[in-house]
Design a protein around this nucleic acid. Structure first.
Length: 460
RNA sequence: GGCCACGUGGCGGAGUGGUUACGCAACGGUCUGCAAAACCGUGUACCCCGGUUCAAUUCCGGGCGUGGCCUCCA
């Protein structure tokens, strides 16, 4: 099986060959823990979880190292901490914010069916590595000290800008006005900066006396180095990170290690809109994973996400969720008493073609059709293949027990009405039974009469 | 303004230089006391304008539209 992946750096789909098939190494930029993760944050989590699962399938579960970091030092965290816990010392407030957010994030992504990464390094636990990288960059002339800051010298790297296709001269022409006066070049970016009183602070590198804290980009260079080495196979994240974050990571790591590449493949997931509009707090369409999970099973959210290829822009809609719910209801019904069988070759092949999940799902739909005609192997294959991408992980009972919070009904009342209706049906009082069914329908309850009795679900 | 993507039927969404994607919805049918579910069947497409070609939705150029980045943003 040949795996092809699209590489942002070369803008082409290429055959994937790991540096070491016994240890395939992938790094994905994780969250900054200061607020509930939103549906846009969920996209890279789900997309790269599918890639992780595929790599484990192709190279063996013990031969893939997946690193997804936690950014726990950042101005946004400091601001949130000061806002939420004004009475606490800042460092204590920060710890509260990061611990709570971190816990919530892990609950959310677990509910989305994402496997835990092999390593989840935290920025604050890699300050020593960051200092080493910074010292080396200063020594090699790629960075310099100015007013207790350490800055990366962009002109010291001739091919800076390759990833985002931004030639240096154009960027300088378009650079913003408020450039810090101590920068030698407007494009230079911060590796280390002095901490204000009360802010998190560590001993500074490069002979700087004042304590300080790291800039944003250096943490990923440090953590990927520590856990994956100087170069590795795949680096992923949202497309918005291409510039400046990934461009700067590349500059730091390549200049420190004198390597031609930092990672062999750069993968970026596309952006997300909500009901056709940009997601923003001011528009009131800011969807957090936490809120979504109250109304939809995690697998519905996962499937809705995978209905679109990861590089395409995705329009996040309720109708998309409904469609995913319906598909999974159907699949669970058909595979309820089936053990997982062989994996579907068409689905694997689609996934191996740059993670073409819509095409893989189409293959599963075909299996669905065969299974519906009574083909047991097709049902077994559907179950195994869906599980590979993190779907059909629950028991049928768990699946059908889910109730959306915002469409809550009084269950005992529903059960009582159903019993009354069935009593009427037994004496062929269909006028009364239909009246009760209409009453339930008004409550949003849809009935299904089967040989084994009447079941019900919430209409969406 | 500069750079980078994207634009397929009512909706979602693959793919291809000439042959059915697929799913949802819709419509017809089977089943059902009636429904629902399920099953069977059916329809509508490739933003616009040029060019290349025997042939373009697919390649090239231009336009229009949408989005992203250029600022800490997944």
């Amino acid at each position: 099986m040949e795996l092809k992946l699209y590489d942002t750096l070369t803008r082409e789909k290429r055959l994937f060959r790991p540096l070491d098939p016994n240890n395939v190494r992938i790094y994905v930029c994780g969250p900054t823990v200061y607020d509930f993760a939103h549906i846009g944050n969920a996209r890279p989590v789900i997309v790269f979880d599918v890639l992780f699962r595929l790599l484990r399938h192709l190279y063996g579960a013990d031969h893939v190292t997946y690193v997804r970091n936690i950014t726990d030092v950042d101005d946004k965290i400091n601001a949130r901490a000061a806002e939420e816990y004004p009475d606490l010392p800042l460092n204590e407030a920060i710890r509260k914010v990061t611990e709570q957010t971190d816990k919530q994030f892990h609950e959310d992504v677990a509910a989305l069916g994402a496997l835990p990464p092999t390593v989840e390094p935290r920025a604050t636990e890699h300050i020593a590595e960051m200092r080493i990288l910074i010292e080396r960059l200063v020594a090699s002339g790629n960075a310099y000290v100015a007013e207790d800051n350490v800055l990366f010298s962009v002109p010291s790297m001739p091919d800076y800008g390759k990833l985002s296709k931004r030639p240096l001269d154009e960027m300088i022409a378009g650079a913003r006005v408020d450039v810090a006066p101590y920068k030698r070049d407007p494009m230079d970016f911060v590796l280390w900066k002095p901490s204000k009183p009360g802010e998190p602070a560590w001993p500074s590198p490069a002979g700087i006396k004042a304590p300080g804290r790291p800039g944003w980009h250096i943490e990923c260079s440090a953590m990927s180095w520590k856990h994956l080495g100087e170069t590795f196979d795949i680096h992923g994240g949202g497309i918005d990170l291409v510039f400046p974050h990934h461009e700067n990571e590349i500059a730091q790591s390549r200049c420190v290690f004198h390597t031609p590449v930092m990672a062999n493949f750069w993968m970026h997931n596309g952006f997300l809109q909500v009901e056709g509009e940009k997601m923003s707090k001011s528009l009131g369409n800011f969807v957090t994973i936490h809120d979504l999970l109250k109304d939809w099973p995690g697998e519905v959210i996962r499937l809705a996400m995978l209905q679109t290829h990861y590089r395409q822009p995705i329009n996040w809609t309720v109708s998309g969720l409904r469609e995913a719910q319906k598909t999974l209801d159907h699949w669970y019904g058909l595979t309820a008493d089936t053990m997982p069988g062989y994996l579907c070759a068409d689905a694997i092949e689609a996934l191996a073609d740059d993670l073409n999940t819509p095409k893989a799902l189409a293959a599963l739909h075909e299996l669905r059709g065969e299974a519906a005609k009574g083909a047991r192997p097709a049902a077994a294959c559907l179950k195994a293949s869906a599980r590979l991408i993190g779907l059909l992980q629950q028991t049928p009972a768990q699946w059908s027990a889910f109730r959306p919070a915002s469409l809550a009904v009084d269950e005992s009342k529903v059960v009582g009405l159903i019993e009354a209706r069935n009593a009427a049906r037994r004496v062929k009082n269909f006028k009364e039974s239909d009246r009760i069914r209409d009453e339930l329908a008004k409550m949003g309850v849809v009935l299904k009469d089967t040989k084994d009795g009447t079941t019900w679900e919430i209409a969406r």
